[in-house]
Design a protein around this nucleic acid. Structure first.
Lengths: 209, 209
DNA sequence: TATTGTGAATTTTTTCACAGCC
DNA sequence: GGCTGTGAAAAAATTCACAATA
């Protein structure tokens, strides 16, 4: 095992492996081979072994991987052995749904604030949170030590919101707006443009009939 | 220009270029260089030219690309000059938000049905749609000629829902559940696991401080 | 025997750099 | 003079294939 730059595709797959293992673990299986993991998530077994080898020798030749152990390693690698605090800016349909989405909490991501600049939305309740004025961003981030920001505002204001987040101390941004953000490169950004994903389906559907 | 296999990364970028051009077009700019597009979306200009070259010679040497023309080409390539009908199965937080999400309609994707098997949800109104029983899947798909299915159900039932979609005639699936789907390979599948994206942020945030 | 870990080979993707053209 | 289109070069990611070993 050598330490070097990890392909982003590897990081994505590690996250996928970890969920698959979580599920395998619940069934009580104690040992698993790279071949089984591969089948479970739809990649090659060599790929699984290569991905894992970036981080250590987790398996036993002739036997496979201990499910609980490997799961633990992956959670550690992914930084999921702690809780992360996140704020959402943009309390439209998507932002509100994400604020209440159970999937995030299950993996240790806690939404500590939902902000918007629309007077009509401010004060509305989303489960146990109230929508707050965007101006509160700095204090919410500071108070809850949030490090992750989720952007669900229209494209036109995404850059401004991103800059405000960075000024407030946010270090990583999940950007649902269809606008590429221009930020200092010590800020980690992931773009999740939902329409892009439908458009990719459209491309492949269109060209095959 | 040669016709050969298009990298998926290229398809993703084409979708991103098309949105950037839409925005440029609204400002009234008539001509744009690969360098400007590159800056606008955060890739290299050679990448932009290479991506476009898979599909044709759209530019003029010494001048650049005609914005409206190039936009039209991209929309055509992506299969977005028509409307697509889509059904959503799973009317939880996420599914309900997606059903009302304006971003899809803006790009020609029309949600024609939202289905769930929970008696408490059936009959509820989501803007101009009513949540229908999952059993209606076949008839909804047939009636509206839906070709795209969006899965927002829990992991345990995702595979079943996917198979029912395929049986109903769906050809492309956007899968928001954290489970890899096992389907005949003439079905186009895109996985959009929202937690995976947060976990990737977590990985990069964790390893840099 | 079964399965990992990993160099080497292969394939894919990106970048370079410049001829060709407006 | 400026910018595209594209072969060639470089870099990155994946697959192969097998020695190592429980």
């Amino acid at each position: 095992m050598k330490v070097l730059k990890i392909p982003e595709a590897t990081v994505i797959r590690l996250s996928v492996y970890s969920r698959y293992l979580e599920q395998v673990r619940r069934k009580g299986t104690s040992t698993i081979s790279s071949e089984e993991i591969a089948r479970g998530v739809g990649v090659s077994s060599a790929q699984v072994r290569k991905d894992l080898a970036y981080f250590g020798d987790f398996g036993t030749r002739g036997v496979g991987y201990n499910v609980i152990e490997l799961y633990g390693h992956l959670m550690k690698i992914l930084g999921l052995t702690r809780q992360w605090q996140a704020v959402i800016v943009g309390a439209g349909k998507l932002g509100s749904a994400l604020a209440m989405y159970a999937g995030f909490a299950q993996r240790g991501f806690k939404i500590v604030g939902v902000l918007d600049s629309d007077q009509h939305k401010i004060g509305q309740k989303l489960e146990d949170l109230y929508i707050e004025p965007f101006e509160n961003l700095g204090s919410v981030v500071a108070q809850h030590k949030a490090e992750i920001g989720i952007i669900t505002v229209p494209a036109e204001v995404a850059q401004n919101v991103a800059e405000a987040m960075v000024a407030a101390g946010i270090r990583g941004i999940l950007n649902f707006s269809p606008r590429s953000l221009n930020l200092s490169d010590d800020i980690v950004v992931r773009n999740v443009d939902l329409s892009v994903n439908l458009e990719i389906l459209s491309f492949y559907l269109g060209s095959r009939k």
